[in-house]
């Protein structure tokens, strides 16, 4: 069972993009994959995957109601399947009020059970729902969470439930290694909740060609404190097109989605994008990242062959195991 929260302390580190791409890569490895979107804001995983039709309807059943044990329907009715096969439990506006709803529940239940507020396991509710009530480990091979960026109840519930982090980081400022905030959060959670949180890997993303960026990436790759299996370059055009294709970077390349100016307006259409080697290389790295998480972190058994069926082109097959061998022999 693969479980990971894609998180790093700072905002805008391409978490949502990475969650989508890793989820699709895992699904392409024939792992049955579910993503949970805990971010109620615009530009979240739910809109990327074109899901969550009822996310703004206050009466609609949603994940929050199930986490708080006040469901308005079947849990499995929350799950939608995206075009690329990944399942998603979409976001809902109620996620934005999670803490106040939780406080109400705690007041009510601690009153009933004559228990102190401090004793209430407020960070353990998602864990209870996913594994104890729904037993999702029997149904899925991989579950990923795109949490909301704010360090509060929902994020702690996500980390408590999945226990393993994948941390995308972005070259920032003078390019120092800034995982300190994340480390503190993890340490505090471990001490208070008596759990062990694992860091699968750190993924430098949006790394450009400037010296500062390259140095930043080097610094990360040279540290032994955590794994950096791949870094992802600055791929704004490719990743931005995901929001038009409503899917992963794999889909963008295969269906050749492109945004361009037509009759004075910006439009996005499939069948237009040029096939660029560096973008194919990015897909290879995303696949390698998913492979690393699945096998090195979680011991899954996977044949890492990426088949790209690019519209109007012959199929490409990238076998990561062969890459491994050639690297080993040339090294």
């Amino acid at each position: 069972m693969i479980t990971a929260v894609v998180y790093s302390e700072s905002g805008g580190t391409y978490k949502t993009t990475m969650t989508a791409n890793v989820a699709v890569a895992l699904e392409r490895m024939e792992l049955n994959t579910l993503v949970l979107d805990l971010d109620p804001q615009e530009g979240n995983l739910t809109s990327l995957f074109d899901a969550g039709e009822h996310r703004s309807d206050p009466d609609a059943d949603n994940l929050v109601k199930h986490i708080l044990d006040m469901p308005d329907g079947e849990f499995h009715d929350l799950i939608e399947t995206t075009e690329e096969g990944v399942d998603i439990i979409p976001s809902h506006d109620m996620l934005g009020d999670f803490t106040s709803n939780l406080e109400q529940k705690i007041s009510y239940e601690t009153g009933m059970k004559n228990m102190s507020r401090e004793e209430y396991p407020r960070f353990e509710l998602l864990h209870e729902l996913l594994w104890k009530k729904q037993e999702l480990h029997k149904e899925y091979d991989a579950i990923l969470i795109d949490p909301n960026a704010r360090a509060e109840d929902l994020l702690y519930n996500a980390i408590f439930a999945l226990r393993t982090l994948v941390a995308p980081v972005k070259p920032a400022g003078k390019g120092n290694l800034s995982l300190e905030g994340l480390e503190e959060l993890v340490g505090n959670m471990e001490n208070q909740l008596d759990i062990e949180i694992g860091l699968s890997c750190v993924v430098p993303s949006g790394v450009g060609q400037t010296n500062a960026h390259q140095q930043y990436q080097q610094q990360f790759e040279n540290t032994e404190e955590f794994a950096t299996p791949v870094s992802i370059g600055n791929r704004e055009s490719l990743m931005d097109a995901m929001w038009e294709a409503r899917g992963s970077a794999f889909k963008v390349v295969e269906e050749r989605w492109k945004t361009f100016e037509k009759d004075g307006q910006m439009v996005s259409e499939p069948g237009q994008r040029r096939v660029r080697d560096r973008e194919v290389e990015t897909l290879r790295r995303l696949y390698e990242l998913a492979w690393f998480i699945a096998t090195t972190t979680f011991d899954a058994d996977i044949d890492p062959v990426l088949e790209l069926d690019i519209q109007g082109h012959t199929n490409r097959t990238i076998d990561l195991k062969e890459d491994d061998k050639t690297e080993a022999t040339t090294a």
């Binding site: 480990h137 226990r163 393993t164 995982l179 471990e190 062990e196 404190e225 955590f226």
Partner: peptide
């Protein structure tokens, strides 16, 4: 980075004390 355990965390799906599952 002493807080980070490299790899996966200690998630276990087995029953806990109050668990009514198997």
């Amino acid at each position: 980075m002493s807080n980070f355990k490299s790899g996966s965390g200690n998630l276990d799906f087995g029953g806990s004390d109050e668990d009514d599952g198997e």
